[in-house]
Amino acid sequence: MAISVIRAPAVLGPGDSATYPLFSNLAKGILVAPGSARNFCFSIIDVADLSKLLVALAKVTTPVSERIAPYGHARLDWPSIAQSAQRTLNRPIRTLYIPPWLMKIAAHAVDFFARLSGKAQVISADKLGEVNAGDWIAEHPVENPVPLDETMRRCLAPFGNLNAKDA
């Protein structure tokens, strides 16, 4: 039996609880980013692109075992995200870089409260380790990826800052 392992980078799409804080803050004109990752690059994939890829892989008649690291946008950084939000919202975005020491304290505090409540959180000491690991660049481009500004528009639309014709 052939098995394909998909190692997706950050997956962006509307309604995702993991990226809710990112888009909620962007809708308010603020990008909160880890200061330790200020110069790191990362890949992203729109949830629609990832869905198309998974359907295509399921339809393959001659299965092949493989590892796929798909991306829609290969080398983004925090300024790229802010610029896309600025274009989408037609307003300035202020980037607030959180110092590494403060991120570490916050991550451990979140871990503590997650243990008390029994509910896992998006931010954790483990996630902070991933953020600080350096560039995360995927290797396999998807065909005709959703443009970054379109992904941004769909993810910001629930926050009501876009005109109905733009969403």
Rank of each mutant, 00 (worst) to 15 (best):
S117V: 06
W101H: 10
A10I: 08
L50K: 08
I30F: 14
S4W: 12
A18L: 13
R91K: 15
D49H: 00
V32D: 06
A120W: 14
K119Q: 14
C41Y: 13
V142L: 00
R7K: 07
D149I: 04
A2Y: 01
R7N: 09
S65R: 09
A167G: 15
A27N: 12
W78T: 05
V110D: 12
L148E: 07
F112G: 04
A114Q: 07
V11Q: 00
V110A: 12
A85D: 01
Y71C: 00
A2Q: 05
N39I: 03
V142W: 00
P70R: 06
K28F: 07
A107F: 04
F159M: 02
N90M: 11
R115L: 13
Q86S: 11
A164D: 15
M152E: 05
S84Q: 03
A48K: 13
V5D: 07
W136K: 13
A120N: 14
V64I: 11
I105C: 07
T61C: 11
F113A: 01
P79I: 02
S80G: 11
G35Y: 01
Q86G: 03
N161M: 14
F113D: 00
D46Y: 08
P70T: 03
L148S: 09
D149P: 06
P100E: 04
R94I: 09
G35A: 00
N161I: 10
P145I: 08
L116Y: 13
S51K: 11
D135K: 09
A138M: 04
C155M: 03
A167D: 12
Y20P: 01
E150Q: 14
A107M: 06
E130K: 15
G72S: 04
T19P: 04
S80Q: 10
F159C: 02
L53T: 02
F42C: 03
F159Q: 00
L76V: 02
S80V: 01
A133W: 07
K127Y: 15
N161W: 09
A133I: 08
T61I: 08
K28I: 04
L50N: 07
A56L: 10
A125S: 15
A164Y: 10
D77C: 13
D46A: 10
K104T: 12
D16F: 14
E66F: 04
V142M: 00
A157R: 06
N90H: 14
